[in-house]
Write a protein that binds this DNA or RNA. Sequence first.
DNA 1: TTCCGGTGATAATTCGCATTAGCATCTTGA
DNA 2: TCAAGATGCTAATGCGAATTATCACCGGAA
Lengths: 324, 324
Amino acid sequence: MAGVSQTTVSLVLNKRGDAEVRIAPETRERVLRVIKETGYVADPAARRLADGRNRILGVFTYEAVFPTESADFYHPFLVGIEERAEEIGCDLLLFTSARAVSGARRQIFNEESRVRLADGCLLLGRTVDRDDLARLLAEGIPFVSVGRRDDAGGPVPYVGADYPSAVRALVEQAVALGHRRLAYVGAGTGGESRADRLRGFHEGVAANGADGRHLPPEAPLEDLVAAGVTAVFVEEYADCVALARAAGERDMEIPRDLSILTLGAFTRPVQADTDFTGFRIPRREMGHRAVHLLAEVLETGGTPQELLPCELIAGSTLAPASGM
Amino acid sequence: MAGVSQTTVSLVLNKRGDAEVRIAPETRERVLRVIKETGYVADPAARRLADGRNRILGVFTYEAVFPTESADFYHPFLVGIEERAEEIGCDLLLFTSARAVSGARRQIFNEESRVRLADGCLLLGRTVDRDDLARLLAEGIPFVSVGRRDDAGGPVPYVGADYPSAVRALVEQAVALGHRRLAYVGAGTGGESRADRLRGFHEGVAANGADGRHLPPEAPLEDLVAAGVTAVFVEEYADCVALARAAGERDMEIPRDLSILTLGAFTRPVQADTDFTGFRIPRREMGHRAVHLLAEVLETGGTPQELLPCELIAGSTLAPASGM
DNA sequence: TTCCGGTGATAATTCGCATTAGCATCTTGA
DNA sequence: TCAAGATGCTAATGCGAATTATCACCGGAA
């Protein structure tokens, strides 16, 4: 000690000046000097216990955070999250212990859940367990989902990508190039993002007076050809690559004979050198905004929901409809 | 409450059976049932405050944890760390707030240091601030450095790569192929890992009765040629690539006219398609071991130091000395 | 001299849990 | 019947900070 009470130290450490409680400049100096000398730092745990805040943001993912594949889907989100967290002076707590039993899927609320250690948390994952979401909501734990969610029996705070707009824009481009018969290839279900893409497709088709049909992911190329489709919107990137390959095998040329647009869902890693027309999901920006919104929630509460625009990628797989 | 005291709940929650304190199976059941129903989870902060343990391992890096470049140097370490942490049921706390002022280098002990929140921590970085190390040591904070360190005025717990052995092995291979005049190109200083490589080189040269010289990183190819060097051991990968390129420009063929071996230091990112002869730093394994050792330190104390062997990579840039 | 307002610091309390000591109640043996 | 030992649970205390309620002191006004 520097000859003062614990209270005084606490006061010096936190509110450097206050109308209610005052501290003599001289005393403050003395305390600060000793703090600097001894390198004293307040125990964050005690701090958290006392005032319920510790500037720690939890990050929960349903898969490993650090993936073995370098170009992983999550990575850009994490980059964004880390950058913004550093800016606002928060540390990140990765809930790596979330896997209840080996082999089981991760879940937020297992027997030894530690979500509450953080001030709030960020949720990452293609799909999020709706029970987890509901519980988070019910317990009033501040959180923000990276990716739109709407199935938790209540509004969920999120930062998402504006898929409907992006897909509509692509449809519009295709129609402007003379395409009249379009197809959406993909599940169109299994997570809000897929449903959003499909919705955008239907909206775009309707708005532009074109003909649009929805085919399952494994739809063979023949079906497309038979239906006279000239532009395909493929939900999953891997399917996109597969389709292009199939086309090549039957001597169809892309995009002369068929335009292919990718809608950016990455479930299965795949290698390809084709520069597909499509859009870029603003992952890093989503990470940034997610942290930002979480900070906002912590500060003033609320249930922010935000969709970020996707940047269209010209690519080389969209061309005027054949015959034009 | 389930009609029992806080103490009872605590007991049920922690030591499921104890010689000293017993709890009636019936009571235990009742408590567990209520816990399940209400989804109660002990506040980690309070827990930490009370018993000084929270199963959180801090991870400190001197640069951003999630790098923008996908094939980053740190990545494999983190993969390993996360994997093992998950196994032993610990969460990872990334000290992203460590950057004191924007632009400044990160440092562990800044004004609002939070190292103590974690049970212990892992240090990652090409070089680690020696003041930080000394202080960690002085304050008795459990930690393990990923990478050998010896400059903290005391033994530092670490997991490192066994560079000396790896480099000695490479030298031996070169000599076995007839090389007599070898050169080490690189600083040989600036971090234990570089010094270790250089030391391994000198040891290898001495043990194999060859001639070995040490040249600075920017040493021009002419110097090597003039000195009659037939095998170069290049510390920094980028320099390795540059050297190969320079050789190509003067119509020297690798490895016919000159053998080039890389010693795996990655300071500057660089693209190359050559498959250099050298060794693989067991980064992921180092991550594994680091977590393991930290757990050990937390358990029983001590100052574990461990060097992991590097796997030699045959590559295509080492050939018999010309003239053989 | 006494009362009062303004200053500057501190004692006491709280947070949620783990831990220790201790208190009832019940068994058992002599 | 009573002491000694088991058994099952709880009251009390501590962890390290933040916060609140007080307290001691000093100078000036009455």
